[in-house]
Design a protein around this nucleic acid. Structure first.
Lengths: 339, 339
DNA sequence: GTGAAAGCGCTAACAA
DNA sequence: TTGTTAGCGCTTTCAC
């Protein structure tokens, strides 16, 4: 396999501008002192020849690739899709490109994807870990080589930086609201302890329930952050034949949407017979019927912080891991208001 | 900026295996004749040293990068998010990695993203064009350099391969169904003529309406494929004060979901007062209330075909552009059934 | 079957 | 300020 010939190389530009490759390089990459004349002629020549630097030659020589890697559990999950969009937006502002991979909720796939990001010498890595324990080795390996920022979820070990939502505060906002609505019997439907958010939201829920004297919670339903699990949880709760709780606090909008669907199919009215809340604030929470009360995560802010952490790391190197939390905002809609 | 030192280079492996770089390369990249002994020792040494080939050095020398580029109008749009997921899945099977970019529904952003894909020497490019006319130049430029396949939408000029849904057949399925439900007054709410799908679905709609003798359609509402436009269209239709149509045929599920939301807020019952249909078959169409009748696009199939087209091109080079259409499947749900 | 050597396009010493 | 030179790590002739 022959190398693909390049339209115009730095050599061509240098020749056309009547300078050396080195000078041309200095002009184009903006480093080092160069004369006005050189700048003008090189710029002109580069433009005329339609010169595009060879990314690989550059990467082979330098330490940067202008590329940020991102690994998420599942692209099709609307929450992650919206997060990806926010990151892509934020990346444009710092002139970085996005290398994206999907770990399919599998720790081993995730490890492979992270390894391939490292092979591609990404300048930084944004990862939403699949599992708060078993994702650690791959992330640790990455962390040894490149700045890593975990977003939304994190692994247990203190590895690199993190930016996510203040889950405990969020859950408290939800509980306050529900109690205010007169609920005393509230059940949690959320992700299980395999992810940090599942764990934290569960703990926060228990703590918040304990804080309110008269409130009690049924058996929490813990599983995946999927529509299907939301449905399944409802079937389990209703199948158990016990009295219906007054409210369902769901660990994500996706779960809540699935739960509401199943409730409707089983003839249970929301918010008539039971209140439901979500978490994340995805676009669809607003157009669901009934519109879903949720906690909006400021994704653009999260994305901006993630990029900022990455670039700071790149500039300043090591240092204690930083843990940033943004505050979710309670959006009260029909699903949680007594008719 | 110093080059980042590599953990183990081919040189190291060769040394450890007691062969030359050339032989080591031949073993590892599987090209050329090599002795059993060489294979064993090189493999062993590579494994022991944790050798990972340098992607950039390889790309600099060879013609392939194991990377496929994908440019979509908006990642956050659930239809595209699901498409991206399907493509990512399909790519794994052919050992390719994904370079993803968002064109933000802007032709100029799209051109920039495509150019940067070319800079990165992607082996192939998958693009969902923003505009069926103005996206052509950038796609043509790409097509001159690398296999390009347009997915879902296409530009007017015959550039590279295409794989998408048979929109006309889809619209016909919808119309047949609606007429069967007794509808005679049907309005289209869809994307405008700036995209090929907007155009095709509109034309197909007009043609199908003409085919049925007694059916007439109100003024079609054309705009973006967004939730917001779905709402806006409904406001316009109702604000016009004319008699409500019997059904709304929406050009995408996202539009339909927005439209249903607005109808509800305005006190119009679906399917009691008006029927609504979507297009695409995104996950949320199923859990909407009422569940949305839609046309399911077989995304995994589309993705597989796209990859197949790309790899065939890569192997066989030029040739007449191929235009593949997959058949959407009508999924009838509550939103289009007279109570 | 194997090795030596050239070179992909670029950046960064080091001289001048 | 500029040019010369030396590689970054790899694949691929071309001899042997």
């Amino acid at each position: 396999m022959e190398p693909i010939p390049q339209v115009a190389t730095l050599q061509d530009v240098a020749l056309a501008a009547g300078v050396s490759k080195a000078t041309a390089s200095r002009v184009l990459s903006g480093a080092g002192r160069v004369s006005e004349a050189a700048v003008t002629s090189v710029r002109e020549a580069a433009g005329r020849l339609g010169y595009r630097p060879n990314v690989f030659a550059r990467a082979l020589r330098s330490t940067t690739t202008q590329t940020t890697g991102m690994v998420v559990p599942r692209i099709g999950n609307p929450f992650f899709a919206e997060l990806i969009e926010a990151v892509e937006d934020a990346l444009v502002d710092v002139d970085q490109h996005l290398f994206l991979a999907d770990s399919h909720d599998s720790v081993s796939t995730e490890a492979g994807r992270i390894a391939s990001m490292l092979d591609r010498r990404v300048d930084g890595l944004i990862v939403v870990p699949v599992d708060h324990l078993r994702s650690a080795p791959a992330i640790r390996a990455a962390h040894a080589v490149v700045p890593v920022v975990q977003v939304d979820r994190s692994v247990d070990a203190p590895l690199g930086d993190f930016v996510g939502t203040d889950n405990a505060a969020g859950i408290r906002l939800i509980l306050d609201h529900l109690v205010e609505q007169g609920c005393r019997d509230i059940t949690l439907v959320s992700g299980d302890a395999s992810t940090s958010v599942g764990l934290t939201r569960h703990q926060a829920f228990d703590a918040a329930v304990r804080r309110f004297g008269g409130v009690h919670s049924g058996e929490p339903q813990l599983g995946d952050f999927t529509i299907e699990f939301g449905r399944e949880a409802v079937r389990r709760i209703i199948g158990a034949g016990r009295r219906l709780p007054e409210a369902l606090v769901c660990g994500s909008d996706v779960i809540a949407l699935g739960a509401m669907r199943e409730l409707r199919e089983l003839g249970v009215a929301v918010p008539g017979d039971i209140l439901v809340t979500g978490f994340d604030g995805i676009h669809f929470s607003e157009i669901a019927e009934p519109a879903l009360t949720t906690l909006r995560q400021p994704l653009r802010e999260v994305a901006d912080e993630a990029i900022r952490l990455l670039t700071t790391r790149l500039a300043n190197g090591r240092g204690a891991p930083r843990h940033l939390q943004v505050s979710p905002k309670l959006i009260v809609r029909s699903s949680s208001q007594r008719p």
